[in-house]
Computed example of a mutant assay.
Amino acid sequence: MSTDYQQAREALGIRLRELRLTATDGRLTGPQLAQRLGWPHSKVYKLEGGRQTARPEDLNAWAAAVGRPDVAEELLTRLRGFESHIRSWRRQLASGHRPVQDAWNVAVDEARTIHVWEEAVVPGMLQTADYARHMFLRYADLHGTKADTEEAVRSRMRRQDWLYQSGHRFHALVWEAALHVLLCPPRVLAGQLDRLAGLVGMDTVELGIVPLGGPVRIPPANGFWVLDERLVIAEDWHSESWLDDGETVATYLKVWRTLRQAAVVGAEAQAVISRVHRVLSAR
C-alpha cells in the first residue's frame, strides 16, 4: 500500500476519532460507539488507526451514530480523495522514468477522447523525441532519479501511435508561454515548433493555443489530462494525481472548456507558432 494512501487513511481515522470524542450527546468510548453501530469494537479502532479502509456505508453510519449526519459528505469526500491515486514522484521514479511512461501508455490505450491543458511544456503526445529527451533529463536532475532517458523516450514515442488510430480525438490546449520555454537547445525547440505546426489540421488532433496577453477567464495554472471524461491525471512538483470521482472530473472539464474559450485554432494557431519560431530564430 502506498505511503500517500496510508497517510490519507490515517488522516481520515483521526477525523473519525475526533467525531467520536465530540459526539453530540457526550463523549463516546470505542466500545460504546461499536455497540451503537452493531460492530465489533476492534473495527472502530482499526478505522481510527488507519488500519482498515472505510466503506461509504461505514462513514454514513459513523456520522449518524455520533449525532453528526451533516459531516457524512465531508467524510465521503475524504474517502473519494484518497481512493483516487496520489502517486508521489519519489516513489514512482525509484525505478526510473520508463515505468511511469509505460503506465501512461496503458491508460491512454484505453481512451477514445483526451482533453489536455499544458501551461509550461508541449504535451507529451505531441513532443518530438529530442524535446522529450531533454524533458526527461531535466526531471531526472530535479528528482535525482535513475537516468533511463532513452527507454523513457521510446515509451513516450510509442504512445503517439494512438493519434493515428481511427475514432480517436486529441483536444490539446497549450499556453503560448510553453512554446517559448528553453528547457532544451534552440534547435530542438525549433524542431518541436515545426512538429506542432504540422499537426494543425490533422483529423484526430485539435490544437489550441492560448496567446500571451489574451484575455482568460481563469488563471492558466497547472497542466492536466482528462481521459474519456472518466479520469483526470494532474501533475504537481511532488506527485501525480489520478482522479476518477465524477465531480472532480467535471470540474477539470469545466476548467478545460473555460480555457478553450481563450484559445485560437487552425490558421490562427499556426500564426502564433510561426511568430514564436521567428522570435526564436532571431535570438
Rank of each mutant, 00 (worst) to 15 (best):
A172G: 08
V66N: 08
W39I: 08
T53S: 14
E73T: 13
H41F: 06
L231A: 01
R156P: 06
A140N: 10
L12S: 09
A94C: 09
H277R: 13
R195N: 13
H171N: 14
I114T: 08
R17C: 11
W162N: 06
S241L: 03
R55A: 11
T258P: 05
S274E: 14
R51S: 13
E48W: 04
G213P: 06
A197C: 09
R260E: 14
V100P: 03
V249L: 03
L93W: 08
Q92E: 15
H168N: 11
D130C: 03
S274W: 02
I209P: 05
I114K: 00
L47V: 10
V122E: 02
E247V: 12
V210R: 00
I114G: 04
G198P: 08
G144S: 07
I233T: 07
L212G: 15
R138K: 07
G30W: 02
G38H: 02
L253S: 02
A94R: 12
Q6S: 09
Q35E: 15
R187N: 12
D161K: 07
A147W: 10
G96T: 08
V71F: 08
L137Q: 13
A190W: 09
R91E: 15
R27L: 13
R217I: 04
H134G: 03
G13D: 07
R27M: 15
W62L: 10
R283W: 02
K46D: 14
A267H: 10
E74V: 12
R9K: 06
G246C: 01
T251P: 00
S281F: 01
Q92G: 12
Q160T: 13
G13I: 06
V276K: 00
T113S: 09
R283F: 02
F136T: 06
H41S: 14
A177C: 06
Y139N: 14
W62I: 11
R195K: 10
R260P: 02
S88A: 10
S88N: 03
E235V: 04
A11D: 13
Q192K: 01
G26E: 08
V216Y: 05
H238D: 14
V249F: 04
E119G: 14
F136C: 05
L253Q: 07
E10S: 10
V188R: 00
K254P: 01
Q192C: 08
Q261H: 02
L212T: 12
L259M: 13
W256H: 13
R80C: 03
S42T: 15
E10P: 00
W104P: 01
S88T: 15
P211I: 00
A267E: 15
A197I: 07
A63H: 08
V174C: 09
E235H: 01
G38C: 05
L182Q: 14
Q160H: 04
